[in-house]
């Protein structure tokens, strides 16, 4: 889980995030390109494909983590 949070923090360009972070609202510099980068990261690191419509429904970092874990 720590590695996942590190990867997400790197994409979001913040020091740290938690599972509760609402990435669209809590991240000051959020933009759709970061969302596309997260989709790529989950594909590359966890071999899980999240399509854009599904990603648009995710709200927190924890939601992304659950998808990455195949839940």
């Amino acid at each position: 889980m720590d590695n996942f949070l590190e990867l997400i923090s790197e994409i979001l360009e913040v020091e740290e995030v938690s599972m509760d972070t609402d990435f669209r609202n809590d991240i000051e510099d959020w933009d759709s390109m970061k969302g596309f980068a997260i989709i790529c990261m989950v594909d590359d690191e966890y071999d899980i494909q999240i399509d854009v419509p599904t990603f648009l429904k995710l709200k927190t970092v924890g939601d992304i983590y659950n998808k990455a874990m195949g839940k």
């Binding site: 790197e10 994409i11 390109m33 596309f36 989709i39 790529c40 990261m41």
Partner: peptide, 12 residues
């Protein structure tokens, strides 16, 4: 510079 550009481009 954005480290994920190449991967985003390949995928999208």
């Amino acid at each position: 510079p954005r480290p994920h550009n190449k991967r985003i481009a390949e995928k999208f």
